[in-house]
Amino acid sequence: MSLVDTLPSSKGKLALVGAGALALWGLAYWVNEWLWDWVMYGVLKLDSANRVVETVHFFVYDFLKIMLLLAGIIFVITFLRSYMSVERTRALLGGKRSGVGNVLAAGLGVITPFCSCSAVPAFIGFVAAGVPVGVTMSFLIASPLVNEIAIGLLLTLFGWQITLLYVVSGLAIAIVAGWVIGKFKPERWVEKFVFETKLHGEAIDPSRGLTIKQRVGIASGEVSTIIRKTWPYLVVGIGLGAIIHGWVPESFFTSVAGKDNLFAVPLVVLLGVPLYSNAAGILPLVESLYGAGLPIGTLLAFMMSVVALSLPELILLKRVLKPQLLGIFVGVTATGIILVGYLFNAIIP
């Protein structure tokens, strides 16, 4: 964060630094296209027909590309999101009933900056302020499931149609799951202390009163936090992708988990529960598996399960939710994800 203290405070100079950073980013993205051709085939005189050489080439190119995309997308989105906060979302949700409340909560879940490590304080804050449990769950499901960074990556890697389907179906899952949970009278399965929590003092809204420089600081801090947290996943994901790209025949995956195998979708959803990563970490692997011929519905179901149903988050939520409610949450969300997987497989050739 100390880097941010060195930034100029005047808006004009700050804009200049921003323009410089953008130009550098664009240059790096552009250079990446031919840098590796030049290094590997030009300077090192490696044989481009050799499969090992080609695999390494694919890896370094793709790794740098995804890193640059991630850094750019995370910066822009975190900057924009610094104008939104969980506190503001709670104020907007106050007094909303189930139904309208679920729709609003899911939508706000997408744009509100939120870390799953804050799931418990946010849950208490919502419920203690009178937001219904089902509506709160719509927010908590949508927040990791429909992730803006995933939206940015999907747009650049897969195009707008698949991105749109992802957003709409993710929202639908969050809305319906929260609404269904609300029908079970879930208040009886919430730990008592949540309702007994007295909120002292005015909530301070972290999105207000920040200077542009502070927002830039938050955004660049987030870029370094996520990159540091995600790069091992990227090495594994892109590494597997490079190996699949060069060595595994397409028929292998399509025969194991193609559209004809009806068990593939539920199986990948199950596989996704113990795995935990954010959408940014899992998407490069999804891209390479897609390139290897796996159907998109199965892959999106896998990704949704990895991000929305995770053991660490379930363990956190266990502090405030009784097992019955946790079970309903997992069951309803998993069912939604499986249905979306089948739907995508059916409508996308």
Binding site: R90, F114, V120, P121, T197, E202
Partner: peptide
């Protein structure tokens, strides 16, 4: 968590 939440903090 209960103590944290009682300060009216959500993140």
């Amino acid at each position: 968590y209960a103590q944290i939440a009682s300060y009216n903090i959500m993140s």
